[in-house]
């Protein structure tokens, strides 16, 4: 990495901001927030502005990762396949500048999407619900931003580590499916094999640690803390987990004081780790590959 990260990031952001696809994604996020607010306002009378924030958490937890993965999965490998990477690397920016510059550029794109959505939420909250729970709004916005950039980073990391667009897409989709559709199987499954029973509500701490180590779970756990009402994670259920444990934070599933790695804030660390590890692996592989 050298001093050219910023130049690459700015150029990437400028390039991305002329992409219709990326604007469609931003438009979709903003539209979804708008529809959510208007729909709830139209059908209910007694929803508070803070509860309303909780209602947009579920659609966001579905759409934000998808949007972020689309924003990121082509970042490096797209340039590698088109050949513009050679033009870029022929100039002073080096491979590290490309990976981290791209990462910043794409984080910029998803940040615009999240910030615009939350600005729309701010306006609609005041217009339709008469108030804005400012601290909830800020905290939930920040968590959503972290959630979005986790998936952007994951996708950019993958895009740096592979040599074809197809492979990048496959890994990005595969990882998302793992989080959404297979997580219970890969966590509660081994628990069943080891302990000969499905995990109870008060399960072993190693299990609770692994089970919550999913950005979707982490997003739901932290969101539940900052908005009114429970936010359920958008994950397939196979009935291996006890029904009562749905929507319970890991810290609530241990008796007494929860260890630090089961506390709600640790979900933020889990997201950061899911952002960081793919980027580092992608960077490592990209540094060593023949283009």
């Amino acid at each position: 990495m050298s001093s050219h990260v910023g130049a690459v990031a700015r150029k990437d952001f400028a390039d991305a901001s002329r992409s219709r696809l990326l604007w469609s994604i931003i438009g979709l996020l903003v539209a979804l927030t708008t529809i959510g607010y208007v729909a709830v306002w139209a059908v209910t009378d007694d929803t508070s502005a803070s509860e309303m924030l909780g209602f947009v958490a579920l659609p966001l937890s579905v759409l934000l990762p998808v949007a972020a993965l689309i924003v990121g999965y082509m970042a490096v490998v797209g340039e590698r396949q088109s050949g513009s990477l050679k033009l870029l690397l022929g100039l002073p920016p080096n491979r590290g500048d490309v990976v981290f510059g791209k990462l910043l550029g794409r984080i910029g794109v998803i940040s615009v999407a999240v910030v615009l959505s939350f600005l729309v939420a701010l306006v609609l909250s005041i217009v339709l619900f008469g108030s804005l729970p400012i601290s909830d709004w800020l905290a939930f916005g920040a968590i959503s931003l972290l959630f979005g950039l986790t998936f952007v980073a994951l996708a950019v990391g993958v895009s740096a580590g592979v040599s074809s667009r197809g492979r990048s897409m496959a890994i990005a989709i595969g990882t998302y499916l793992l989080f959404v559709g297979l997580w219970e199987l890969v966590t509660a499954g081994p628990y069943y094999v080891i302990h000969d029973e499905t995990p109870p509500v008060e399960a072993e701490t190693w299990y609770l640690f692994v089970q919550q180590f999913n950005p979707l779970q982490a997003y739901a756990t932290i969101s539940s803390e900052v908005v009114e009402g429970d936010v359920f994670p958008f994950m397939f259920q196979y009935g291996l987990e006890p029904f009562e444990a749905q929507g319970m934070a890991p810290a609530e599933r241990v008796s007494g004081e929860a260890p630090f790695y089961l506390q709600e804030w640790f979900g933020g660390i889990a997201m950061l780790i899911w952002a960081l590890i793919p980027v580092l692996i992608g960077y490592y592989r990209f540094q060593r590959t023949d283009l």
Binding site: S19, S84, K86, L91, P92, P93
Partner: peptide, 26 residues
């Protein structure tokens, strides 16, 4: 450097390309 098998950035203008090269080369 004029590499083989390169491509330009489709969405950026020619001028932006040059400006980027000028900025990175200081």
């Amino acid at each position: 450097i004029l590499p083989e098998g390169y491509d330009i950035y489709e969405r950026l203008t020619g001028r932006k390309h040059l400006e980027f090269a000028i900025r990175t080369k200081d």
